[in-house]
């Protein structure tokens, strides 16, 4: 059970004179149950990459295998793929349209062909998962606060029970409080139900605390791929391409360079604290 990208390339506006190569020979393997962060600045190809995973964009060359089957095969049911690989777009609250939150969340399950009763159950379950306040189930989605709208929109995708959930900048435009809540929620979903999560972001610090694996996209291809501490070890290169490693990484490297025997690969405040106390503790 996995997603495999095999030499995937994608070019925008083929034949129009101003072609843009958005993806350039990408090879990736994503296993079941992984929690992955895809990082890159605007235009690095990260959004294009994830839209390939559920078939919304078709590669110009190369192919993608989902659970062993070629998704570009003539007989492959790509509508089914989209429900297996769920996708939460940037500012997902802009897609809400029904008269109540509950009806809106039911939209996806109904499109899957479930009857009203099953769809209701799914919607209920999904809204519980995103900790949406029960008293607002029947509220109009347009009257909610920003954070609640986003939860409702995320529930609309997870109600389809995808095996893989992709979130494109799920915290964009939220304040720190809203951001922590949404990221916490995503982690909880991952830990409890073992769903594969792919988080697209341009913020290293957001992602470092949550994911197990980071893929750094640059010019349409993965530049680094590994555990956060391995990726952040390349902090100088990251800075060159306009992405900063977490502040802590810089500090630990500075200390290490000055001859203190700290582990420079600490990436979170907690890890850094333990390291500094270990080395400087006796002062």
């Amino acid at each position: 059970m996995s997603l495999i990208l095999d030499h995937v390339s994608y070019t925008y506006s083929v034949g129009s004179g101003y072609e843009v190569k958005a993806l350039n020979d990408v090879n990736l393997k994503i296993e079941d149950g992984e929690f992955i962060g895809i990082i890159g600045h605007t235009g690095s190809g990260k959004s294009t990459l994830v839209q390939h995973l559920n078939g919304l964009i078709q590669a110009t060359s190369g192919t993608i295998y989902y659970n062993g089957a070629d998704i570009y095969d003539k007989d492959y049911d790509r509508k089914e793929l989209r429900t297996q690989v769920g996708m939460v777009f940037q500012y997902p609250e802009h897609q809400l349209f029904e008269t109540t939150v509950f009806e809106d969340v039911k939209y996806g399950p109904k499109n899957q062909g479930l009857d009203d009763k099953q769809a209701t159950l799914r919607a209920f379950e999904a809204l519980q998962k995103v900790k949406f306040p029960e008293e607002n189930y029947d509220a109009s989605p347009f009257e909610l606060s920003g954070g609640q709208k986003r939860r409702a929109a995320i529930a609309g995708v997870i109600a389809m029970k995808p095996a893989v959930l992709i979130l494109d900048e799920p915290t964009a435009g939220l304040d720190p409080k809203g951001r922590d809540e949404i990221l916490g929620l995503i982690r909880e979903m991952h830990d409890k139900s073992g769903i594969t999560i792919i988080l697209v972001s341009h913020s290293m610090e957001d992602v470092a605390n949550y994911v197990d694996r980071i893929i750094v996209m640059e010019k349409g291809a993965p530049l680094f791929d590994g555990a956060p501490r391995e990726v952040f070890a390349n902090y100088k290169k990251l800075e060159e391409i306009g992405l900063a490693a977490p502040q802590v990484t810089y500090l630990m490297h500075d200390l290490y360079d000055q001859g203190y025997p700290v582990d420079p690969q600490a990436t979170t405040v907690e890890e850094a604290k333990q390291e500094i106390l270990r080395v400087f503790g006796n002062r």
Partner: peptide, 28 residues
């Protein structure tokens, strides 16, 4: 694209179905 990711089908046959499929696009 967002509605397609939620299973929307904008290529449905028939005028009524087509009109219905447009609601999730037009309201937002």
């Amino acid at each position: 694209k967002a509605q397609m990711a939620r299973g929307a089908d904008f290529e449905k046959k028939g005028l009524v179905n087509k009109a219905k499929a447009m609601v999730p696009l037009l309201v937002p």
